[in-house]
């Protein structure tokens, strides 16, 4: 593995290895002084062209635990505003001695574009409506920890699948590890029929459901998603009230899912829209565990990509 660009190009073997490594690394986070010198002297560039709270701090935390140095970039106040291209920006930052680039960008494929032009590893921290591979890895780690396996599970993803890079990575990742993924939400925010062929990477491993009940019934894991309004550019949702009433997860849905089924959300959450307020109290809601696991997964990714040289 030279880069981490998407789940699509990872084998199930590699995913398994990263998850195992993440599990082992979690122990470090529990130490009184959670810091090891493994990546001392390495410089990681955090290029965030899009707003991020969780992912950016999670990568930063992962770097610090492993003693790597970080440099941060934000589009505001950079030479981007002076018309510099992303390629020039990154080549210049590379000249400063960067060993690895973590990039989040609003345009799909930008990490791949940089990977083509750079000799150092590139990690995709979310690109447009394409993929968010570390989020899928941490989701899988969380499920594996809580339910003991990823094989044979029914995973339901609810919401704006079309514009969610998290959904895309989860759909591929969970299937690769042996789960079946059902997606549901407003039909025009689900993959087009032609696109659905791509997401079914295992026969019967993926299903689009126009009725929420079908997706939720006997699910082992439910992943709720935010409406990606900033990526729509055209009106999809009549009103938030309409959305909440028809596609929001509420306690009445709990009867459909398996007992002890996990409720997840990649954040940020719009309470009262995709999740009703009461859902915070659902005992198998693991949203904050996801955040914790994010650090371990990102440590594992950094280690794999940087310990080779």
């Amino acid at each position: 593995m030279r880069h981490l660009l998407d789940i699509y190009s990872l084998s199930s073997e590699t995913i398994k290895e990263i998850l195992e490594l993440s599990e082992n690394l979690k122990e470090i986070l529990e130490r009184p002084i959670p810091k090891v010198p493994t990546l001392r002297g390495k410089l990681v560039l955090l290029l965030f062209y899009e707003p991020s709270t969780r992912t950016k701090f999670s990568f930063e935390r992962a770097c610090k635990v492993l003693s790597a140095d970080t440099m941060s970039f934000s589009a505001k106040g950079s030479s981007l505003e002076k018309g510099e291209t992303i390629l020039d920006t990154v080549k210049n930052l590379y000249a400063l001695g960067v060993n690895l680039v973590v990039i989040r960008h609003n345009l799909s494929g930008t990490p791949h574009f940089l990977a083509k032009h750079l000799k150092i590893p590139v990690v995709n921290a979310g690109d447009g409506i394409h993929e968010h591979p570390t989020q899928a890895l941490l989701d899988m780690l969380t499920v594996k920890e809580k339910l003991g396996t990823l094989a044979g599970l029914k995973v339901a993803i609810v919401g704006d699948i079309k514009h969610s890079r998290v959904a895309h990575s989860d759909i591929l990742g969970f299937q690769k590890m042996g789960s079946t993924v059902y997606v549901t939400g407003p039909a025009h925010l689900l993959p087009e029929p032609k696109e659905a062929e791509f997401f079914e990477i295992r026969p019967g491993g993926f299903k689009i459901c126009y009725k929420m009940e079908e997706a939720l019934r006997d699910a082992d894991v439910v992943i709720a998603l935010r409406i990606q309004r900033e990526r729509h550019g055209e009106p999809f949702i009549p009103t938030l009230q309409e959305y909440a009433e028809n596609f929001g997860l509420t306690p009445r849905h709990l009867e459909l899912i398996k007992e002890g089924a996990l409720l997840m959300h990649p954040g940020p959450i719009n309470w009262g829209v995709e999740l009703s307020y009461e859902m915070e109290k659902y005992p198998f809601q693991v949203i904050l565990e996801q955040v914790e696991n994010g650090v371990a997964v990102r440590m594992a990714v950094l280690l794999r990509l940087l310990s080779g040289d």
Binding site: H168, P191, E195, A196, E197, F199, G233
Partner: peptide, 17 residues
């Protein structure tokens, strides 16, 4: 906002079809 043909590849590359 379309970038490439709508279908399996647009889904895989995360590009609007």
């Amino acid at each position: 906002r379309g970038q490439i043909n709508e279908g399996k590849l647009s889904a895989r590359l995360g590009l609007k079809g």
